[in-house]
Amino acid sequence: MSPRPPTLREKRRYILARIEPAGTVLEQKELYYAISDATTSLWGDATTAIITPAVVALEHGHVVIRCRRGTERELAIAVSTVTACRDVRICLRIIAASGTIESLRSRFRPKKSPKSKTQPGHESGTEPEVEKFATETGAVEEHTLPECTFAKKTFFIEQCNGQKVDVIEKGFKNTNRLFLTKEDLEDLNATTISDRI
């Protein structure tokens, strides 16, 4: 079967969204189901069929969602109602819309500098400092993550990006993520903050 000529194809648009919290590992298919559910729940089957949402790329903590041209607004509203993906709490922050995937990819792909050539499998640039520490020392294990205390409890520092620090409570029962700032940790217990963050 020969492919349809470009003039007869459906016009499509692509929406770029950032996945929060940073570092959340998701599967493309699961995210598609979450977006599709949100769209169907908000707009119904008939409108969702017109929007035809699809997840076309999921890389570097960003997702590219495809829709039919003219339905970007509806899709954006539906995407703002996505709160979880397979019991993992997430939030999709829409960054841009475009007619091509490539122009969106240029927005989130880390720019390669000629001086710092990375080994295959290693990605640089946007990775947080904690991640860097983990990769430099070898295997990424839970106990290698730096610790801190907040509200008289001990936490592992999961992510650290600028002022923002995401922590997870040490232990087996409460593994919920807390979203703090460096200032919060400094105020409460300055002596226990790891030097690595």
Binding site: R177, L178, F179, L180
Partner: peptide
């Protein structure tokens, strides 16, 4: 904000 939620007021 925390302790009612999981995010500090600064964040």
């Amino acid at each position: 904000p925390y302790p009612l939620g999981d995010t500090s007021v600064r964040r």
